[in-house]
């Protein structure tokens, strides 16, 4: 691990008119670290994720990113062109619903290759080879490369979406409920895959989830949100095994034991 954080979040708040999305959130994300944001529906998790990934402008506060050139840039002060470039090269965003993150009408190969073409790759053979390699890495058979994602199952779509995001070797990936809507065995496989990829590639990730099991498996550190505020944060195992806040205790005790 390098000695400087990848993302510095300082006192970020987002208000929707009089209502609060999230309030006074500060944290730092380090290279190679996976951070889970957990909490119930409406607690501001997704709002916070949108503010961090520049999909929403925070009402106040600063989000700084450590660029590849070694400088910190305030995301809100970057031009739209720079932001969009960052989003499709150095970042990834995995949506809960794969249809939001994929182009459903073009083949799997083109879905994976789109980012490569967007950054100027103009050699069909190379693009296809890279796409095939990535499909293999996310455990999709290579002969499905010319199939459209709508011919894929939910789990395959989600894995394809991950491949599409990782093809440009991003350093930071945002995930919004990556396992939502999948059945448990497929969830387990996906989590295993994500954990392997994060480890192999040294990715940093911010994962929003309401599923504490997902947080337990994937994340090093977690933040618990309630009513827009971060009420507790710490190492995942510490928070889950020894929750301090009454709300976190409630959350942990509401997990169904089988």
């Amino acid at each position: 691990m390098t000695a400087v954080p990848l993302l510095k979040v300082n006192d970020v708040s987002k208000f929707y008119g009089g209502r609060t999305g999230c309030r006074n959130v500060s944290f730092e994300l380090w290279p190679g670290e996976v951070l889970a944001i957990v909490g119930e529906s409406g607690s501001g998790k997704t709002t916070l994720l949108s503010c961090l990934s520049t999909r929403l402008m925070p009402s106040s506060g600063i989000v700084e990113y450590h660029m590849r050139d070694g400088h910190y840039r305030d995301l809100a002060r970057m031009s739209e062109a720079e932001r969009r470039f960052l989003m499709r090269t150095d970042w990834g965003f995995v949506h809960q619903n794969p249809a939001d993150g994929l182009r459903m009408t073009v083949s799997a190969g083109a879905n994976v290759g789109e980012r490569l073409m967007a950054v100027g790759d103009r050699h069909y053979g190379n693009i296809r080879a890279t796409a095939a390699d990535w499909l293999r890495r996310v455990e999709i058979e290579e002969d499905r490369i010319d199939d459209q994602p709508r011919a894929f199952s939910g789990g395959m779509r989600q894995r394809l979406q991950i491949a599409r995001n990782l093809v440009t070797s991003p350093r930071l990936v945002f995930m919004d409920e990556p396992t939502g809507g999948l059945d448990v065995s497929v969830q387990a496989r996906l989590l295993d895959l994500v954990r392997g990829l994060v480890h192999d590639l040294g990715l940093s990730a911010i994962i929003v989830t309401h599923d504490l099991a997902v947080a337990r498996l994937l994340s090093h550190r977690m933040m618990v949100m309630k009513d827009g505020l971060v009420i507790e944060q710490g190492l995942t195992d510490r928070v889950l095994d020894d929750p301090r806040e009454p709300y976190t205790q409630l959350l942990v005790s509401s997990i169904l034991q089988v």
């Binding site: 073009v106 083949s107 290759g113 789109e114 980012r115 073409m117 069909y124 010319d146």
Partner: peptide, 22 residues
């Protein structure tokens, strides 16, 4: 319009890629 303004034309090649793939 935004794609034209920011010169983001990767998508055009996605179409040509699809042509060759099919």
């Amino acid at each position: 319009r935004k794609m034209h303004a920011l010169e983001e034309y990767g998508l055009m090649h996605v179409k040509l890629y699809e042509d060759i793939a099919r």
